[in-house]
Amino acid sequence: MPAFDAIKVGDELPPLAKGPVTRQHLVEWCAAENDYYYLHYDERVAERMQLPGTPIQGTYKMALMGQLVARWLGGSGGRLATFNVSYRGLSLEGDTLTCKGRVVRCSRDVDEGKVELELWCENADGVRSAIGNATVAFPA
């Protein structure tokens, strides 16, 4: 739970590990995001698309990256203002995902303090399969 004045460029967010991500997680995420695209729970579809396994939803990785930020913020009063994610590679059922982030910029104006974060999601082999950034606003 960081106070704005205690946050410094280079600070790392406590990593968030999730996994192994099972079929159960994938189907629960279909329900959560209200999108049952069959690729994420039917390996026959993945095979037809010549994929090596059933892919984890990109939006699940995005939500985990959001959870990483939310847990870091705790009850600090910081508010997520912007959140951008770019999907760079596959993560497959059975993989363990680890979301990480660090502070890249801090600024302050009259109304609020602003912290910019670099975020990413790694597969078990360390490949960054999603990268992104976020801005958190703190009341002045």
């Binding site: 990109g58 939006t59 959140f83």
Partner: peptide, 21 residues
Amino acid sequence: RTRRPQPSKGTAVKAGDEYEF
């Protein structure tokens, strides 16, 4: 969201998402 997959030709993958809250 539309719950059921929407039929479309070809293949699609998500490239990215951006939000401003």
